[in-house]
C-alpha cells in the first residue's frame, strides 16, 4: 500500500515536472518568437510607397503611414486586406500570418501606386 502510494506520488511529481518543463519551454519559445518578430514601416509620400517592397516573416507587422497631403489606401491586389481611406499621418497595421495575401498591393485611389510584400 505504502509502495503503491509512493509510486503514485512519483508519477504525479514526474507529471508536474514534465508540465513545468513544457510550460517553461513554451514560454521561452513564445518569447523567442515575439522577440524576433519585426515591424516594417512603409511611408507613403509623393505618391509612392517607401520602401516599395517589404520582405516579411510570419508574425511580423507592416505599418503604413501616409505622409502625403491627399488620402491614400494600401490594398491587397486581391482585396484580401485593405487599409481603407488613410488621411495625412494616418497609420494602418497588418500582421503577417501564414495565409496573408502577399504579392502586389495598390492605392485604390491612385492605381499607378504599387507596392509589394513577400513573405519568407
Amino acid at each position: 500500500m505504502a509502495a503503491a502510494t509512493s509510486q503514485r506520488v512519483k508519477v504525479i511529481r514526474s507529471a508536474v515536472l514534465v508540465g513545468l518543463i513544457a510550460l517553461i519551454a513554451g514560454g521561452v519559445f513564445s518569447l523567442a518568437t515575439s522577440a524576433s518578430a519585426e515591424t516594417h514601416v512603409v511611408e507613403i509620400r509623393g505618391f509612392e510607397f517607401f520602401p516599395a517592397e517589404v520582405n516579411a516573416a510570419v508574425g511580423d507587422t507592416i505599418v503604413w503611414i501616409n505622409k502625403d497631403v491627399v488620402p491614400h489606401t494600401a490594398t491587397a491586389g486581391d482585396g484580401a486586406w485593405d487599409s481603407g481611406l488613410m488621411e495625412t499621418d494616418d497609420e494602418f497595421s497588418l500582421t503577417i500570418e501564414a495565409d496573408t495575401s502577399a504579392g502586389d498591393y495598390v492605392c485604390t485611389f491612385h492605381p499607378n501606386m504599387v507596392g509589394a510584400i513577400s513573405v519568407e
Binding site: 509623393g46 505618391f47 502625403d68 497631403v69 491627399v70 491612385h110 492605381p111 499607378n112
Partner: peptide, 16 residues
C-alpha cells in the same frame, strides 16, 4: 512643388 506631384499623377491617370 508638392501639389505639382499630385497634379502630375492625375495627368497620368487621365491619360490612361
Amino acid at each position: 512643388r508638392t501639389a505639382l506631384v499630385t497634379f502630375k499623377t492625375h495627368e497620368g491617370h487621365a491619360e490612361k
